[in-house]
Design a protein around this nucleic acid. Structure first.
Lengths: 210, 210
DNA sequence: TCTGTTATTGTACACTCGTGCAACGACTTT
DNA sequence: AAAGTCGTTGCACGAGTGTACAATAACAGA
């Protein structure tokens, strides 16, 4: 299965010296960074490796991004967007029933391409920047707030009273994150189906069975 | 408050050229690595920085560990031990009532020195090794299994029937981890007290109110 | 006091790292 | 067809990386 946002480098029409629209080139650098993070992990991700992956000279990365950290941050933002889209697609398939949409949201979290060791490598690379740089910490706060805001909408639609929505969303977000993290780190410990079941049981306790 | 396993380098009696018992020196290198990981993050942690922190020549690290990765792995194992001890201490203070012990376990997870951005940096450094090296992935599996085994004991003592213990432990572990992670990454989003309350509510739903 | 052991040092090696920058050349405009 | 723009290259630079290894010196036992 092809991963969202990860295109085949062989098919990349930019692999010979050729000018590209700035947006296109930017996007191709982000895509290359995604592939490298997934393949090599945070430690093996450098300007030169990414440049080779993108079939481009190392200098070009400095031309488009203020530094390697900025490229990783942009890559993370892109992945966040991709994941959100995958979630939306799963929910759209679930129809209009609020609880069915919530279940679809949860289940998608533990199914490829979201539950994916390669995605984890990107997340870890980003987290290590969060602990070191204030601007990236802010980006993380924003993105996570967006994640919780989606959950609040879903929970509200399921009838969770307003005064409990905030903590309920934090709880569900944490449960999903913890299960997702462990599912990626130790895939043999439990299955995605079991993770889904745990999360759905928690929702049952929170808002009553569907 | 002083962090567990982090000693004052000024008070280190090894700071002049002096032979040390292998175990003592090993331990002092691990302690130095812990401090560096906490202060500089995974990216800023190198043989030379650790050696300077330990007031020791860089060559000594290779003499005691097969490489920098082995030192980081040993540091992680040590931190895992330290955290487990802090948990045991919190539970011992809670007395004999099973549910009180479980609550103490949960609360300690969201209180310094366990909920600590510095600890997070070490965890992240270790996770990035997990995705890259099979032997370290095994170490992670073992340590996390130990964490879940403790939870199973606690849940069993609270009357959770055996056939539900495994998934219940996975659920509680994931919830604690997710809350802990977010508490460290975005300390402004919710408080340790709120995290405790969320976890205790989840336990109420799982095993009934105390 | 001398000797043997080995913890410890300091340095050298061969890399990789991120960034800066002059030169080149693909494409647009005139 | 000539000129201008700017995407792109390729390399140089200094700093940092992990590891290897001979030399040194602290300590134990004789």
């Amino acid at each position: 299965m092809s991963k969202p946002g990860i295109s085949d480098p062989q098919a990349d029409p930019l692999h010979v010296l050729r000018r590209a629209e700035p947006d296109v080139r930017r996007q191709s650098l982000i895509a290359a960074c995604t592939r490298v993070l997934a393949r090599e992990g945070a430690a093996g991700t450098s300007v030169r490796v990414i440049a080779r992956e993108a079939r481009v000279s190392p200098g070009l990365i400095t031309h488009y991004f203020s530094g390697i950290d900025a490229l990783v941050a942009a890559t993370y933002a892109e992945i966040d967007r991709t994941v959100a889209e995958a979630m939306d697609a799963a929910m759209a398939q679930a129809g209009d029933d609020p609880r069915a949409r919530l279940d679809a949201f949860v289940t998608a979290s533990f199914t490829p391409p979201i539950a994916d060791r390669a995605l984890l490598a990107t997340w870890i690379a980003f987290w290590s920047l969060v602990t070191a740089r204030a601007d990236i910490a802010r980006q993380h706060d924003d993105q996570y707030a967006g994640f919780r805001a989606r959950l609040i909408d879903l929970l509200a639609a399921c009838g969770v009273p307003q005064h409990r929505q905030r903590l309920a969303a934090i709880a569900v977000a944490a449960l999903i994150d913890g299960l997702w993290l462990e599912l990626c780190l130790s895939p043999g410990c439990f299955t995605g189906e079991e993770a889904s079941r745990i999360a759905r049981d928690h929702l049952d306790a929170l808002i009553g069975p569907p």
